[in-house]
Design a protein around this nucleic acid. Structure first.
Lengths: 186, 186
DNA sequence: GAGGGATGTTGACATTGTTTACATGAGGGG
DNA sequence: CCCCTCATGTAAACAATGTCAACATCCCTC
């Protein structure tokens, strides 16, 4: 009953395949469009198979969000370790660009649906990501804590407003330039 | 206009009753917990009745979000017309406090599920709300546009980070004081 | 090579949003 | 006053979804 010679009963690495396919569907269709059955079909597996690797749809989403935070962390560390002239500005730009180029993943990371109280894994991933952020931003969290929080808020808010198309670009205006300007305006 | 004691076949003003009950459920259970059937039952009406007033669940949510933006606008205008010493700071504080005291409604207003491209009503309500914001913030949108956008981003981001419990309060620290500090840090 | 646990399948169930056909009743024109 | 009409509500059904239980298949170890 194999549809092809190369379709073994056991997939081999289903968990990873599910996550990868889910990421693609997520970016294309949004979180609401990511159904377990569609996902299973996309990977060529039955509808119940994902439950061998994820307790529930929410757990699958949580895993996606966790990898999102890891990628986010990686991007932040990468730009920080490149020793830019203005670290804060460079990281802010990276922050916003990450949000824009991973729109639905970014939204998922901060989705209220995954109330973090019930999902320690997600909370930990988020905290880890922001810890690296804090660490790079500076040990001056004691004296400059408020300024750091303000910068964080500004960058995060800018990401979301841009994501929602709330900030209108002017004719011939470049998104990246606008980001730089806003971040630069302290 | 008399709503009789015995339950009449026709509810009287179902649309309004649905919206009010929905708001309560939304704040208590979150958007995911707001099911059409539960809502109908809460109002004492059959499961299909809401469809006489809303095309779909999404339309119901849209209507909720629209009233959210209207309340938001009202709060903004109220504080602006009170002629505070520092209008920007006062409005920023109101912005964040509105988000905190209407958590799930605020989240719904900016929910990606209601992609605004397909919902002109919501887009219009949002634009109207932010127009009053822009109007009050100043006609200096020509010269100070970047600064205004930066302030908006900061306040919006602060709202969301606080909403998600992402910003940790220190021992004995007051939320409202922290908000004021962050907003004040230009 | 025989079992056992991990992994995948099939079929079913409850729930949800939604639709279709029907019931009710308020209000206006004859 | 009756009747007709239309807005509004109900009941019953449908498709789709997340999820689970029972069964099948295969890899690994003793």
């Amino acid at each position: 009953m194999s549809t092809s010679l190369n379709s073994p009963y056991h997939h081999g690495n289903l968990r990873q395949a599910l996550l990868e396919a889910a990421l693609i569907i997520l970016e294309k269709e949004g979180e609401a469009g990511l159904g377990l059955r569609d996902l299973a079909r996309a990977v060529g597996v039955s509808a119940a198979a994902p439950y061998r690797h994820f307790d529930s749809r929410a757990a699958l989403l949580e895993a996606l969000a966790v990898t999102g935070f890891q990628r986010f962390s990686a991007a932040m560390e990468a730009v920080a370790s490149s020793n830019p002239a203005d670290p804060m500005a460079a990281m802010g730009k990276t922050y916003v660009l990450f949000a824009l180029s991973n729109a639905n993943l970014f939204r998922l990371m901060f989705s209220p649906q995954l109330k973090k109280d019930g999902r320690p894994g997600l909370r930990m991933a988020a905290d880890a990501a922001f810890d690296t952020l804090r660490h790079v931003v500076g040990g001056d969290m004691k004296t400059g804590r408020i300024k750091a929080l303000a910068a964080w808020a500004k960058v995060h808010g800018l990401s979301i407003l841009l994501l929602d198309g709330q900030i209108a670009l002017r004719a011939g205006e470049d998104t990246e330039a606008l980001i730089a300007e806003i971040i630069g305006s302290l």
